[in-house]
Structures are given as structure tokens and as C-alpha cells.
């Protein structure tokens, strides 16, 4: 088991001086993930907060090779790099003992929505890549528009709460299961507050041969509207309410990595964030109920899948 002290001794691949918001959850995720392999790493990053806030020219927060080409194509860009690696290796233009790891990174917008096709294609083709989605439930970089990862009831600028609207009314897309349906070697869902679990998953993802996918809950004080010091508390709550279950699917076999002793009501999660504030109005009570129902269904199904 890795110790935090040992991780801290490793050189940062993402460094200080980035422009992500005060209390942003993105760096916490990548601080851990980027330490889960010792091999040289190449990252292809989709457009979004992480990309924008780390590379404002002439500065860069990347102490590792990194490329951005567009919003919807991190998965195809990283596959192109991986294919070239294979080609040059076969031709002997990269030494036999030289290894690289290839990491595609995108937000929920770049992954659940506009980049889903590219990701589906890349994992179906079987490239030896890891793809990490940092899911902050919203298009944060462009100011808080809905994505298919936005939960029911959340107010986003393109699904705002209003006198006639309770915020987003659709159920969120279960992207992790979409990836499971691709029958790839490794799929997992993680959260930054359980760093050991996140680290283990990232390590497995880097180690398996073929495509691996990690979906990581990402705290966003700016768009979720909470006191920025409480991010990690919120992550606990997301997992304890089963809004964001931690599980992994290795070669098709489900394993839930954390089962709360006592599953907390979704309300506990919702009341911490301004984006759900309007749900406490009488007329929106049904949304809360619906949210709880969806979470219960998903949790039940997940437990069933695990027992298979």
C-alpha cells in the first residue's frame, strides 16, 4: 500500500501556479492519478477547466508531456499518439525497453457529451490507453451549462431553475456503465477523498493492457456553490448517499469498493449546495423524491450486478 508520504516525495507532474479556482477539486484528482505510474507519460487533454487553467501561454503547469487539440477528441488524439508509438516501436525507432503511458483526460462535457463518440471508438479499437473523466457535473469552464452528467434538479445556466422550472429535469447519464458495455478490461468510478482507492484504480488502469476508463467525481465550488473549504466533506457525502458509488469492473466483474454502513438520504447531499437550493420549495418536492428514487434504483442494481 502506498503511503501519502511516499507519494509526496514524488515530483509533481502538475505544478503550482495554475489558474484553477480557489478550492477547485481537479488538482486533487490528478495529484494522485499522475503518481500512479512511473513511466514517461503523455497526456491528451480535452478543452475545459483543466486545459485552460493550466496552459495560458507562455505559462504551463505541466511538468509532463501534454497536448490539447480540441474539445471532443481527447480520446482520438491520445489513440493517435499511441498508434504512432506502436508504429515507431515496431520499426525500431523507439528503443525496445522504452515505455510510455498514454492518458486521455476530459471533463464531463468533453466525455459524456461531445466526446462520447470518440471515446467509444477509441476503447472499441482497443488502444492501450487510460481515459480519465473528471466529472464536475457541469460545463464549468464556460460558466456552468448543463451536461448529461448534471443531476436531476440541479440548476445550470442552460437548465436554470425558474418560476416554471425545477432546474434540470432529466436523469443523469450513467457513463460508467456505458463504458462497461464496451467490454474493456477495466472501468472504475472513484472519488478524490478516498485517495488510496483512487490511487489503486489509477494504477490498475495504467497497468492493464488495453483501454481503461476512470470516472472520477470532481468538486467544483464555483458551479456547485458551496463554501470552498468543504469540498472533501462533500465528496464523503456523495459517496455516503450513494449518489456517487465507488466501484470497479474488472474484465466484466463488478466490485463495489465502498458500502456506506448507513446509506444517507440524498437530501444530505443536496442541502450542501446552492445549485439545488430551489428544490426546497414546496412545488419542487417531487424532484427530490425522484432524485432519491433514482439513486436507490441505481444502488440496488449495482449491488445486484456485484452479486452476479
Amino acid at each position: 500500500m502506498a503511503k501519502l508520504k511516499d507519494l509526496a516525495a514524488i515530483e509533481d507532474r502538475l505544478v503550482a501556479g495554475h489558474g484553477m479556482c480557489i478550492g477547485c477539486g481537479i488538482p486533487l484528482i490528478f495529484k494522485v492519478i499522475l503518481r500512479a505510474t512511473e513511466d514517461p507519460l503523455i497526456i491528451a487533454n480535452a478543452t475545459g477547466c483543466l486545459e485552460v487553467c493550466t496552459t495560458i501561454f507562455p505559462r504551463t503547469s505541466w511538468n509532463v508531456t501534454w497536448v490539447h487539440s480540441a474539445f471532443e477528441n481527447a480520446a482520438s488524439t491520445i489513440s493517435g499518439i499511441e498508434v504512432m508509438y506502436k508504429a515507431l516501436k515496431k520499426k525500431g525507432r523507439i528503443p525496445k525497453d522504452k515505455r510510455f503511458k498514454f492518458l486521455g483526460v476530459g471533463g464531463d462535457g468533453g466525455t459524456y457529451d461531445i466526446g462520447l463518440q470518440a471515446l467509444s471508438g477509441a476503447v472499441e479499437r482497443g488502444h492501450d490507453i487510460v481515459y480519465v473523466c473528471y466529472d464536475n457535473n457541469v460545463y464549468a469552464n464556460t460558466g456552468g451549462q448543463r451536461s448529461s452528467a448534471t443531476p436531476i434538479g440541479a440548476s445550470a445556466t442552460t437548465s436554470p431553475a425558474g418560476t416554471q422550472s425545477p432546474g434540470k429535469i432529466q436523469r443523469r447519464k450513467d457513463l460508467t456503465k456505458v463504458l462497461v458495455a464496451h467490454n474493456i478490461p477495466y472501468v472504475a468510478q472513484a472519488s478524490p477523498h478516498r485517495w488510496q482507492d483512487l490511487y489503486n484504480k489509477a494504477k490498475k488502469a495504467f497497468e492493464v493492457e488495453g483501454p481503461a476508463f476512470l470516472n472520477v467525481l470532481c468538486l467544483c465550488p464555483t458551479e456547485w456553490k458551496y463554501d470552498e473549504s468543504l469540498g472533501i466533506r462533500l465528496a464523503h457525502m456523495a459517496v455516503d448517499t450513494c449518489v456517487w458509488p465507488l466501484y470497479e469492473v474488472e474484465n466484466g466483474k463488478y466490485k463495489i469498493n465502498y458500502k456506506p454502513k448507513e446509506k444517507k438520504p440524498v437530501l444530505e447531499w443536496i442541502k450542501t449546495q446552492g445549485r439545488f437550493r430551489h428544490l426546497f420549495k414546496e412545488k419542487n418536492a417531487w424532484v427530490l423524491e425522484e432524485f432519491q428514487k433514482q439513486v436507490d434504483q441505481d444502488w440496488e442494481e449495482l449491488n445486484k450486478l456485484e452479486s452476479l
Binding site: D12, A16, G17, H18, T54, R59, T60, N63
Partner: peptide, 25 residues
């Protein structure tokens, strides 16, 4: 001092890895 267009690396590349440590957040 900001570079002229001739002084920039071909292909929009930043070769100064990790230089954001100069941004004091």
C-alpha cells in the same frame, strides 16, 4: 518581454515545462 512572432517555437509549443510556478496564486 513578450516574443515577436519570429521568436516563438514553431507549432504553438511551450517547452518551458512547469513554468507556471512563476504565477504566485
Amino acid at each position: 518581454k513578450k516574443e515577436s512572432w519570429k521568436e516563438l517555437t514553431l507549432g504553438t509549443i511551450n517547452l518551458d515545462a512547469g513554468n507556471s510556478v512563476k504565477n504566485l496564486t
